[in-house]
Design a protein around this nucleic acid. Structure first.
Length: 445
RNA sequence: GUGGGUAUAGCUCAGUUGGUUAGAGCGCCGGAUUGUGGUUCCGGAGGUCGCGGGUUCGAGUCCCGUUACUCACCCCA
């Protein structure tokens, strides 16, 4: 009897990535990194595993339920990080003496949440965070928006909207309504407006928050405000009854929209949406959510905002900051739905056909010359039929096949076949890499 | 944690009121004469029908249980 085979399966919410997907993932990561670095954010990393108390400190019960938590053999209570913000708070408190303020970092890494997976949501996924801490300047908030904008631009998106809000608008309104202590519950209710509609939110405000009808109406009126940023701000201002906190928020948002426009961001990319609120409690100022216009249903693909004090649990030094997180896997899921993922499964541009095994050294030498010139090149590992090798090249998505047999070696030339259009030309060894690079750059521009 | 849906070939699925050796498309492998891919044609491999029990002369099909996956809620990227 042969042993029964082990069933091949991955855990729910955990995934394998095939080359074509992985290429797209890596391209996204590389772009995010480039954009962050172009603004001066520095890379950091932290352990995947932390002491549980570090992670559970501030997060509510909900986050704790989602934690992958266990006891080590040595009896330590540990957990996998469920976001990058909390580990960053620990990191900042621990190292702020060496790194100084203001401090800007980006952190691209995997996080884990034990929640039920669904569309665009996984148990193991990657976040691309960037934050500026150690300053409460509103200019850092504005620059955060610029980063988000440039990021999506560089990722190749043209149709996206960054929705902006400021927590003080709603907090100011809640003060005037006597609901200041219910802000979290109200925010969560209003956040659901697009999903459960006006009546649903109204019910939740009355039953869940305990608001009276008139108050709920006032909140809904507030959440329903729309228009250009200028129009919205004017309407909000009239609802605020001169509340100082709210008016401060309005002034900050006016500055933000002016400044961003002057800096060169098209007006239709940024919207003021007073109904976005974010569930997380620690945002205290500006709030951002980014939606793809062609696929809004998948949710926000980049969210963030300002917090008063990042690391209050770990240090007495106040560390205000602002930042955002790109949800890489959700974005990737969206791109797949939109048919925006490339099909190529190879990072190399050129496949050297191994025609004659006794000339292996010559094939390897040419491949190395091409690589030295920046052209990624794979040499087929065995001398199979030319047909097979070209089939392989086509399936994997190589752009060029390089062929040489005894005739070519005798003349010192190569057959350069462009697999995109089938054109084949004879090229001398010396011109090969420049010829390939020229044609690659044509195709990409 | 709550509610719904689905489990048949590597993938996407079909499978009539239970009835012989379980099918298709795609993919994979091979072939269509000697050094040319994508298209086409031909051939082939590949499945204890998620698992366990029950009803029945007979179960992929009906019933119960179980596990996994999936969608939505909660929450969130």
């Amino acid at each position: 009897m042969t042993q029964p085979l082990i069933k091949t399966q991955t855990l729910s919410g955990f995934r394998d990535f095939l080359p074509a997907e992985m290429m797209a993932r890596e391209a996204l990561v590389a772009t995010a990194r480039d954009v962050y670095r172009s603004y001066g954010f520095s890379p950091i990393d932290t352990p995947a595993l932390e002491y549980s108390e570090v992670l559970t400190g501030k997060s509510g019960e909900e986050s704790e339920k989602q934690l992958y938590r266990f006891t080590t053999k040595g009896g330590r209570d540990v957990a996998l990080r469920f976001d990058l913000t909390v580990p960053f708070a620990r990191f900042a408190a621990q190292h702020i003496g060496q790194i100084g303020t203001p401090f800007r970092r980006y952190h691209i890494a995997t996080v884990w949440r034990g929640e039920r997976p669904q569309r665009g949501r996984y148990r193991e996924f990657m976040q691309c965070d960037f934050d500026t801490i150690g300053t409460d300047s509103h200019l850092a908030d504005i620059e955060t928006l610029l980063v988000i904008h440039d990021l999506f631009g560089r990722l190749g998106f043209e149709r996206f909207t960054i929705r902006v809000n400021h927590r003080q608008l709603l907090n100011g309104l809640l003060e005037t309504l006597g609901l200041a202590d219910k802000s979290t519950a109200v925010l969560r209710a209003l956040d659901k407006l697009p999903k459960i509609g006006r009546e649903g939110v109204q019910r939740e405000l009355i039953e869940g928050v305990g608001a009276i009808d008139a108050t709920a109406d006032r909140l809904l009126e507030f959440a329903a405000i729309s228009g250009t940023p200028g129009e919205v701000l004017a309407q909000v201002e009239s609802l605020l009854d001169g509340n100082g906190r709210g008016l401060d928020g309005i002034a900050l948002l006016r500055q933000l929209f002016d400044c961003v426009a002057t800096a060169g961001v098209p007006a239709d990319r940024v919207a003021l949406d007073v109904s976005i609120a974010r569930g997380l409690d620690y945002y205290t100022g500006t709030i951002y959510e980014t939606f793809l216009d062609d696929l809004p249903g998948i949710g926000s693909v980049c969210s963030g905002g300002r917090y008063d004090n990042l690391a209050g649990l770990f240090t007495k030094q106040p560390l205000p900051g602002v930042g955002a997180s790109l949800g890489l896997d959700r974005l990737l899921a969206a791109m797949e739905e939109l048919g925006r993922l490339g099909a190529s499964a190879t990072p190399a541009d050129v496949l050297v056909v191994l025609f004659d095994e006794s000339r292996a050294g010559d094939y390897f030498r040419m491949a190395r010359e091409l690589r030295a010139d920046g052209v990624a090149t794979e040499v087929y590992p065995q001398a199979r039929a030319l047909k097979k090798q070209l089939q392989y090249a086509d399936r994997k998505g190589f752009r060029f096949a390089l062929i040489a047999g005894s005739d070519e070696f005798a003349q010192g030339v190569w057959q350069l076949k462009d697999l995109a259009n089938g054109e084949q030309r004879q090229v001398g060894s010396e011109e090969l890499s420049s010829s390939i690079r020229d044609r690659l750059s044509e195709g990409r521009s």
